[in-house]
Design a protein around this nucleic acid. Structure first.
Lengths: 125, 125
DNA sequence: GCGATTAGCAACCCATCGGTTGCACGTTGC
DNA sequence: GCAACGTGCAACCGATGGGTTGCTAATCGC
């Protein structure tokens, strides 16, 4: 995880998980516990090089960690980034719900809707 | 949400949330409670047409719902899809954690690693 | 030491995606 | 009724992204 997404770690995770091949790689990785790019490529319909690129993306998102063992690089799934993004999304859903409810109440009581008294979950971007 | 992602609803949400402009649209939508494509385009650095396309993607992912009111179409954020995806991700993180722990234990006790006795969170794809 | 294996570049290809412009069609409202 | 406004559709464009091939460098096993 170098930079590129220093603002919002969730963004990197979302981009990483948006690709089906990347999800398959993570799946295979979680099943094995750890694997190399070459090993993963053997059971996927893509080249080793493609897997390498995907692993780089997953690494930047903090979804995998790489350990060098001799001549091979072993990748292992990392859960913290995933769990954090899950919490972020849940908090976002919650914030939306509360805000929509507040707007609805204010509309019924005839008052104007305050522009942004929100928090707890924060903005998306 | 027509089809296209009938297999895994989370995939559509992930793809939808992967784009920064789409996240901004959702953000603006949650702040207002509801808005039209034209209104949203006014405060975003893109054309109304671009917003329309993004709203279509968000709609397919179940992240917004559209209501026609006379000549205008009002979009409103929908939380269920978001909350569901959040739960899916949390469950996935959990499943990985358990599996990795099981592998570690088996490795320490010298046993072989069973191929896939897992559940509760399910596969990624 | 040498062949086999594995990782790391770099260049390239093509499809998709985000975005734009232009125009036709329904609503609204004076 | 007609002008103004908002939506819908289609064509087009440039950039990015997923994927490939080809080659070089490091490491292992014997």
């Amino acid at each position: 995880m170098t930079a590129e997404y220093e603002d919002d770690p969730a963004a990197a995770v979302l981009v990483a998980l948006a690709d089906p091949t990347r999800r398959r790689i993570l799946d295979a990785l979680a099943a094995r516990g750890a694997a190399t790019a070459t090993t993963l490529a053997a059971e996927l319909p893509v080249t080793r090089q493609a897997v390498v690129k995907h692993l780089a993306v997953l690494d930047q998102a903090g979804l995998v960690t790489a350990h060098r063992v001799g001549r091979e690089v072993r990748y292992r799934p990392a859960t913290p980034a995933l769990a954090a993004t899950a919490r972020w999304m849940a908090g976002l859903a919650d914030a939306w719900d509360r805000r929509l409810l507040a707007i609805k109440h204010l509309a019924e009581s005839g008052g104007a809707v305050p522009p942004e008294g929100d928090e707890g979950g924060g903005a998306v971007e």
